[in-house]
Design a protein around this nucleic acid. Structure first.
Lengths: 230, 230
DNA sequence: AATATTTATTGATCCATATCAATAGAAACA
DNA sequence: TGTTTCTATTGATATGGATCAATAAATATT
């Protein structure tokens, strides 16, 4: 890891939207102390339980955020993509990471000290407002995840995951997965075997086409129906 | 419902902690337009999917927050008590309630217009900071709920619920439940029958004493172990 | 107090999904 | 190019917890 790249935040094309409310001096202050890092696929960005000193802004790649458990399987509670940063509820509570972040693809990120972040929130109401909006969105995603996992069976849950991937990660009905089957399982709260069987059923029913990691949603309407009916 | 009571926010003993960072004028502004309401046990405070115009600050009683689902059972994602307010992630996103709030006991609450709330966040950085901290805590609770429900079996989940009730709601090892068995089930993501059987097992194993709605945690250490081991 | 209604409890059965096991395919490596 | 290693797939079996059904207890109603 740790191949440092650099441009300025002010001209950065992959800058997180959260920084749009900052003025040039504020952006420069962020730029001055930011650390740009490259992670290879599979590398840990941070571990659940460790102290959190930095906000992680993803500039390229894909990151999975998951809850670890000694006895049981992991559960992916979210994915982070450019142009976004990883939400960090511990930054305002116990200064610990609530989950582990791992790069699914080769990923570049900028680390921003949480002190600066806190200062910006105190001094720039628009930044604070945007930050609250992002936290709210994250809360809603968590609520949606609870709803999906507790109120739906395997097909409904897998439908939710495929819809989420196409709408929020790949922005297309057709995409090449960089998540493993195990990841899909962890994301939909089931075992790898169940995930594979659910996908196989969708393929048989012509709802998706599936060749290795190439997925195309052929019948989004039916997938939506399966999601709704659980 | 709607038995209006009144005192001033400035002298209120049941004022939510979130208002501690407000000055007298700000408190007075809140006081001027607040609406105090009484809800009987069982009454709906707001429904999932409806617009959210008010923050609800609980001054007495107990409120359950749950996700509704036509096909499936409800799932309680949290409880709200005095001195607290109900978090409302929709207030910054789609202006809709993400869940339903129902009074479990006779409950009084003050409704505060979200406009005023938004103004305070923009103008008072300490208020914004406290608000972000509260949202962060809520996110962590949601993450804990996901962890509990997906990574533990019935006994672990029920242990989590009992620990939560004693530590965060009743503040004692011994308490009289105002939640029904169905509520306990909805809170731990299982059926009423499974909830009753789990409690029965804990009673047989002398981990709790259970007479109707009177619960005492006799062996908190063992309960904690069950929670950890799932 | 007697009756109706809701909530709680217990037992029997069933089913969705996990677990286990075996194989196949893909990627890494020597 | 064969060997190892990891990931994916498929089938067989096991099981945790849901569902169904039948009281019992508590609460509300007349």
């Amino acid at each position: 890891m740790a191949k440092i790249i650099s441009t300025s935040c002010i001209v950065c094309q992959n800058r997180s939207d959260i920084f749009n409310s900052l003025g040039p001096e504020e952006l420069e202050a962020v730029n001055c102390q930011r650390i740009s890092v490259h992670y290879n696929a599979g590398e840990v960005i941070f571990k659940q339980g460790t102290p959190c000193y930095y906000f992680v802004c993803i500039t390229s790649g894909l990151v999975k955020l998951y809850l670890e458990n000694e006895n049981s399987h992991n559960i992916i509670i979210g994915l982070a993509r450019p142009v976004d940063y990883i939400f960090m509820p511990g930054a305002y509570v116990n200064y610990r990471h609530q989950f582990t972040a791992v790069a699914c693809e080769d990923t570049t990120a900028c680390l921003i000290e949480s002190d600066i972040w806190h200062d910006l929130i105190k001094t720039n109401p628009n930044f604070a407002n945007d930050f609250i909006r992002k936290m709210s969105l994250q809360s809603i995603e968590l609520i949606d995840k609870i709803s999906s996992i507790t109120q739906k069976q395997v097909f409904g849950r897998m439908a939710d995951v495929l819809i989420y991937l196409s709408k929020n990660i790949y922005f297309q009905d057709s995409f090449t997965l960089t998540l493993s089957r195990q990841d899909l399982a962890d994301f939909s709260g089931m075992t790898k075997e169940s995930a594979i069987r659910a996908m196989k059923k969708f393929k048989e029913d012509q709802i998706i086409s599936l060749k290795g990691n190439n997925i195309e949603i052929l019948n989004p309407f039916l997938l939506e129906t399966i999601s709704k009916n659980g």
